[in-house]
């Protein structure tokens, strides 16, 4: 666990050293702030004290930002050869993968924590459902964890960052939209399966304030499958002499 933390901390400082973290934070806060407060069906338009508007914006912005953060995690190490340096230290592949996963999750958590002023502001305007806000944040965090895990796997596939980015978006879009659309088009068992695979169903039920074990199992399984696949890609390394 200590090794995981050492790797996560280095990765996190790499995000900040390379300005990636600042750019991501500014863009995320800018986008979500603009659409939450200023544009379209924003918070004032709804007529009730709720952060639903913010959550549905964040649901989309995170979907695009996370692949941009995860694309370099393993691809860059493989390209520059530093992966060899890392894995010949007393750490194993799993610790490296998990460390990198947590580094990005922490960055997302920081980004979400910076939106807490929205919550405080809205809570002052009217009667807000505090439970729903916290589960909404939990839902965003679980969703981010799933996409980070998918992004990490995509990044492990090749040593090209762009491939990592596009593949993460490609896999992500299935969970984000396509399964939901298919669930509407099919009836019976197929429909139920697609409905279960659809990430937005689980996200919405959590952000409405209901924490169901089935939803938690869903998110955590995506995380674990992603991490295990990344580890196995790393383990099957074929280094050319």
């Amino acid at each position: 666990m200590k090794k995981v933390w050492i790797i996560a901390r280095r990765e996190l400082s790499a995000f900040f050293d390379s300005l990636m973290a600042y750019i991501m934070l500014v863009l995320f806060l800018g986008f979500s702030g603009f659409f939450t407060w200023l544009y379209g069906s924003d918070i004032f338009f709804v007529g009730q004290a709720s952060l639903q508007a913010f959550f549905s914006i964040a649901y989309w912005t995170l979907f695009f930002f996370i692949p941009a953060l995860t694309m370099r995690l393993l691809a860059e190490e493989k390209r520059s050869g530093t992966i060899e340096l890392l894995l010949t230290k007393p750490v194993n592949d799993w610790q490296v993968v998990v460390g990198k996963f947590f580094s990005t999750l922490i960055l997302i958590a920081i980004a979400l924590a910076l939106t807490l002023p929205y919550y405080i502001t809205v809570a002052n305007i009217g009667n807000i459902d505090h439970g729903a806000v916290w589960t909404g944040y939990l839902g965003l965090l679980l969703m981010s964890a799933s996409y980070i895990s998918i992004g990490l796997f995509s990044s492990s596939i090749s040593n090209n960052q762009i491939v990592g980015f596009l593949l993460a978006l490609f896999i992500g879009i299935f969970f984000h939209i396509i399964f939901g659309v298919l669930a509407g088009n099919f009836t019976g068992v197929a429909g139920q399966i697609f409905n279960y695979l659809d990430l937005s169903t689980h996200f919405e039920s959590i952000s409405r304030g209901v924490i169901d074990t089935a939803d938690l199992v869903y998110f955590l399984s995506i995380v674990f499958i992603g991490l295990i696949l990344s580890e196995s890609v790393l383990t099957k390394r074929n280094v050319v002499d």
Binding site: A14, S80, T82, L85
Partner: peptide
Amino acid sequence: PENNPLYPE
């Protein structure tokens, strides 16, 4: 290692 890989940043 060969080529001395390092984290440039």
